[in-house]
Design a protein around this nucleic acid. Sequence first.
RNA 1: GCCGAAGUGGCGGAACUGGCAGACGCGCACGACUCAAACUCGUGUUCCUUCGGGAGUGUGGGUUCGACUCCCACCUUCGGCACCA
Length: 840
Amino acid sequence: MCTASSRTAEKRLNAKTTHLNLEKTMSKKYNPSKVEAKWQAKWEADGLYAANIDDARPKHYAITMLPYPSGDLHMGHWFAMTPSDARARFKRMQGFNVMFPMGFDAFGLPAENAAIKRNIHPKEWTYANIANMITQMKSIGTMFDWQRVAISADPEYYRWTQWFFLKLYEKGLAYRKWAAVDWCPKDNTTLAREQVIGENRVCERCGTPVIKRELEQWFFKITDYADELLDFSGIDWPEAVKTLQTNWIGRSEGADVSFKTETGDEFVIFTTRPDTLWGATFMVLAPEHPLVEKITTDEQRAAVKEYVAQTGRQSDIDREATDREKTGVFTGGYAINPVNNERIPIWIADYVLLTYGTGAIMAVPAHDQRDFEFARKFGLEVRPVIQPEGEMLLDGDKMAAAAAHYGVMVNSGPLDGTVADEAVAKTVAYLDKQKIGKAAVGYRLRDWLISRQRYWGAPIPMVYCESCGIQPVPEDQLPIELPDDIEWRPTGESPLKFHPSWKHTTCPNCDEPAIRETDTMDTFMCSSWYHLRYLSPGYDKAPFDPKEYDYWMPVDTYTGGIEHATMHLIYTRFFHKALRDMGIAEGHEPMLQLRNQGQILSHDGQRMSKSRGNVVDPDELVGEYGADAVRAYLMFGYRWSEGGPWMTENIQGVVRWLHRAWSLFTEEQTGGGGASEKVQRGLRRKVHQTLRKVGDDLERFEFNTVVSAMMELLNQMLEAKEQGAVGTSAWDEAQDYYLRMLAPVVPHFAEELWAEMGKPYSIHTQAWPELDQDAAKEDEITLVVQVNGKLRDRITVPVGLSEAETRARALESEAIKAFVDGKPPKKVIVVEGKLVNIVL
RNA sequence: GCCGAAGUGGCGGAACUGGCAGACGCGCACGACUCAAACUCGUGUUCCUUCGGGAGUGUGGGUUCGACUCCCACCUUCGGCACCA
């Protein structure tokens, strides 16, 4: 057996014995709850994390998405917040002036539902939860600046939410219209299109299938910004989010084409396939289309009326189900196809939606599967006008499905023979010239419906006057405060409507009695600008102090869940762009860098939820292991961007690591002397290599490898200690660097040991350690030698060997000789400093 | 159906621009300490093996001296969209 290793083992044993004896007298036990409480109190008393403008330092504005005050902080909050905190701390140590604030998205349905269920006022419920959550957040050791907390339900906050509404209204971006809107019958309110999810079209919050209701509601013209929202240049956002937003906006290019009815009424259709225009054999209008009434003939009137009524009764679930058989009714009216003056029948069918395009289509059954199914069912003509290259001539009567691909135009009058690549462009040019159509763009994105028939939200600052109509509330009358005395009735209308006096006011224009808008705003309106309120939460002259804006904005790093991709994250971009156009904000984007964390699931891989009873309580774990251990575990155990199932046992790994590190720093620094030059250099090398890795990985949000690298370094330090490294300058540097690298991950732990070593308070105001590239360099490398791509030997060689020398060393190896067996190699590949591959 | 992401030991996960697969942990096994257990410490831990080696990163092919990594096809899982003209 190797004598060196048994000697090492013996030494370890001795060291261990010494350690055990000393433990009782010298080294103190790691008591996380004591350590954490102590430093939290001190940091708060010292205002250590207060962010103030400092022109001498570069700023870094970091935000993690603000929570809804639902009651308790759960593991998901920890998983989102603590790694974001670690990175903000890292940025601070790198020399940035960091602002990392926190707030509460405090308006919303759950408060109101709790109010109804438990007979407690939403305000009371919300603010009690906020107080509780602030206590919990302080216990997790984040560097939140509690002077800047913003709560969207505070009148001083929603005063400005209302002010922004007025600005949008002035700018023409807020409008009111009658529309069939999505309604959640359980929550008794309308929802934005984004809040209706899945195939079953359920409410995003409570899972109840939504229904359609005709209501007059407020909308924001987010569609004005559709094209700009598709432009992600200049921002570093995850591809996944950009794709989700792009798909959500759903831009499609095509053409608007003017048709006329036989009786001379003009109507426009939108198509993405203008090249198939000559193949239109019928038209389809949405049943709700205004022209239906006019074109329907007397013979068809009864059938049309019946079909329209039937469609109106249907829920969207039925109507939008793709696998449903096509239905529809002939109106009796005819249209004239502008390209060939053909007379084609006009039908109505529910597969055409009033809300997309113009609510009317030309039907080209030969080249569109939906139109094809409809034509086959009702015996309408199928006329191919696009011939796929290299295939048999299409026969409209025999086709089994639509041929949706591009090809050569046929049966298309002047454009016959136009090839696929040019077909659309040439047709559009032709339409333009004939003045019957033009290039157009369609979007899936709808305007943002912001009215909610609920109490617990920011009241929409509008007044309805009999003589003056809709009037905005003058700015100096803001905020329109919510009344505290309120009662709930299950009518599906805002409780504000039934308040005896609240809605009665006077018209700002004529001073006559008038009625307030009783709907409140979607809470996504509140969260579209909270990053601006953080800048100066107490400021009362404007939503934010321009001095603070100039220094801190834009947000440098934004972290949160991807579930907000098509809601909050698209709204907040829209909001910023609208403010920019009003001269209120600067720059094109509010948040430069976005990163998404994954989700912590329960042990069984399900989502954690109170109803499933599988929620892991962080408070319990913090009580047992301390906040630092929980922070470190959440960073170590998962890829942050992925998340994964909770595994209670795995926390043992970081708990053991912290205890071992604690012992190393607090036990008597003995066993010094006798460390070889090589051991010292090896220790320095590992320290600086770790520093490089930890810095890179914190920068890239790869927290799991940050912790594993720190574990590796600790292992090497323990070994170096046994080899007599204590007392050397390499050892002192290792200890100093170790704590500074640890500070972002386990802030209390690092602070305590830093103080224990007699270093100046606070570790969190220290600079990030300086990297010595030379120290990190290897002076020996393990050269991998392969024969035919298979690993056959490893040899240790000095750094900087020439290619020829490297090759020679590899061929000299005994193990290699055995494999090469005297045969001359066909080829020898040498990757300097890494590998030699001998090809036989 | 369309769009996107991901498939690596018993488990969580490493592997940066193609170059030692499985770092770091959990768990497990054995050993030390203990009257005993827990803790702690040490050793081992992808699979097969005739102990030479062979196989191996969802599957099948390809490019390459060399592929978890690049290309093609497919399978599975998760997420989003879905009669959007």
